[in-house]
Design a protein around this nucleic acid. Structure first.
Lengths: 144, 144
DNA sequence: CAATAAAAGTTGCATATACAACTTTGTCGA
DNA sequence: TCGACAAAGTTGTATATGCAACTTTTATTG
């Protein structure tokens, strides 16, 4: 049947849209989006990290990463100089903590809702995709 | 370990970026992107389908769908009136067929590369996500 | 049929990305 | 130290989306 042959990329895009929408909803009160919250939490965990490293970790093109960071900066969450490593402002650290609280609860709930089979399915898929695009590199262990 | 608690939405976004990039590369020669090719193939299979139906099927907001369709129209692949159902031009049908050929081969290759475990993992995840967001509706069987 | 309400389609505005090209910074060897 | 090359960062331009608001169509119903 055709249902067995759905588009892998298309399906991932669809699931990405759906889940992004759910997570974004949870961050509404904080006036941040999921991608923004993710970056805040990441920089909180690794202050001083460089743009290029963050971009590689998340498989985002460096120019897109740069623009995301400029956005965080405009919101007052990142310090001035983006070239010398990324650092949160005090406001940014507060925001990151609040986001982490929301994220942690939601992500746990989501794992429970989806169930272990779906989650391990995502694990298996992730592993294979990472192995496919970077056969030699070490395993992916990012937070986002 | 923290690796066990990665963000579900973030991971899906990452995989979506990665796979989109791979598929887009395959469509380079046709001067279309994966999302565009997907719409062309879908309309090819269901001529006359309405914007709103396509949007619901793919979980894309209707305004975004409208703009994607206008883009296809500008490229000469869709007929004039988007309000009376969507129809490909002759050029559009040719393009859709060429895209389908490319897509079919790539998608099959990708399924083989990722392996049955990863693919059934994606199936399991998809099923749970669809069940979560639309508990009562029938099963998802889209092509994208 | 006319008035409205509901559904579909569009547009304004904003974010999230990608690719290419350009600029700045950093490194290394002569 | 200087110049060349590499790496990182930035900007131009375009697509893919989302939300809200507005317009046009379509349906309902008195």
């Amino acid at each position: 049947m055709d249902a067995e042959n759905y588009c892998i990329a298309g399906r991932l895009r669809m699931l990405s849209r759906i889940m992004t929408s759910l997570y974004n909803g949870a961050f509404n009160g904080e006036e941040v989006t999921l991608p923004q919250a993710g970056l805040l939490m990441y920089i909180f965990a690794k202050p001083g990290i460089r743009q290029v490293e963050l971009a590689q970790l998340l498989y985002i093109e460096k120019s897109g990463m740069n623009r995301e960071l400029q956005l965080l900066q405009r919101n007052g969450w990142l310090t001035d100089n983006l070239k010398q490593g990324l650092f949160l402002t005090e406001e940014g650290r507060v925001k990151a903590k609040r986001c982490h609280k929301i994220w942690k609860a939601l992500n746990l709930t989501m794992r429970e809702q989806l169930g272990p089979e779906a989650v391990s399915g995502l694990d298996a898929l992730s592993g294979q995709v990472f192995a496919f695009i970077a056969p030699a590199e070490t395993q992916q262990t990012t937070t986002e």
